[in-house]
Amino acid sequence: MSETPVSKIQLRNVEKRFRSARGDQQIALSRLDLDIKAGEFVCLVGPSGCGKTTLINLMAGFEKPTSGSVLIDGEPVTAPNPDHIMIFQDYGLYPWRTVLGNVLFGLQARGVPAAQAREKALAALEMVGLSQSIDKHPHELSGGMKQRASIARALAVEPSVLFMDEPFAALDAFTRLHLQDELLRIWTETKPTVVFVTHDLDEAIALGQRVVLMAPQPGRIQKILEVKLPHPRERTEQEFATFRKRLFTEFHLVHQQAAAVEYQI
């Protein structure tokens, strides 16, 4: 078994290389270690090209590492798993299905009996506040409601891990803040492990118990910041500002490094 049994997700020496269109190797992630505890809320932030999306795809099983190991519950991740659900920025809702139909999809895929599936789907929709819109089709919903529906679809199958790849990036600021609070409420109620990718530093500090700051060229972890503030967090408080400042300072450093690398070449 793994040396740290408390780790829900364990990455050891993970490296990911791509071959670019021109044929040269690019290192998307370089020798990366990370441990995430069960029930923890971790945010991955960083500038574009730092490999944060690659990293979440590796954990979710959509991609395989070139070397190193990705373990969840001590088992190597080889493929996507219904116990670890990914939530996408563009929702991935099926336009030909109603909201309820979309939430039912995951349960049908698992062969849950119809009556029981309906019950679970309705409960999940209730949790995200979409009980009034179950018969609507996705094109009738706002962006925020679509993301609620896709979160409900994930919650319905009661996954132990939620992977969220910039889920609120396409939403307007007001909706985004509101959904952040909603997500925290849901997380507090159901306590899945959450890995949340974002490029918004404020979002990372508002949500994460830990914020993993990543740096590009090659993609790596620059700094892990523990945000020791209780949820829900008051975004205007002094302590929040302190963490915000620390993260911004680090982020600035990443940018300077990246710029230096770029201009030296």
Partner: peptide, 27 residues
């Protein structure tokens, strides 16, 4: 691709994915 990713993620088999995702999406 995101439709297929979702389908795989939820553990839908090849047949279910074909009938319930690919055919309606292509329709």
């Amino acid at each position: 691709p995101v439709y297929l990713k979702v389908s795989t993620n939820f553990g839908a088999g090849a047949f279910l994915t074909f009938v319930r995702v690919i055919v309606p999406a292509a329709f």
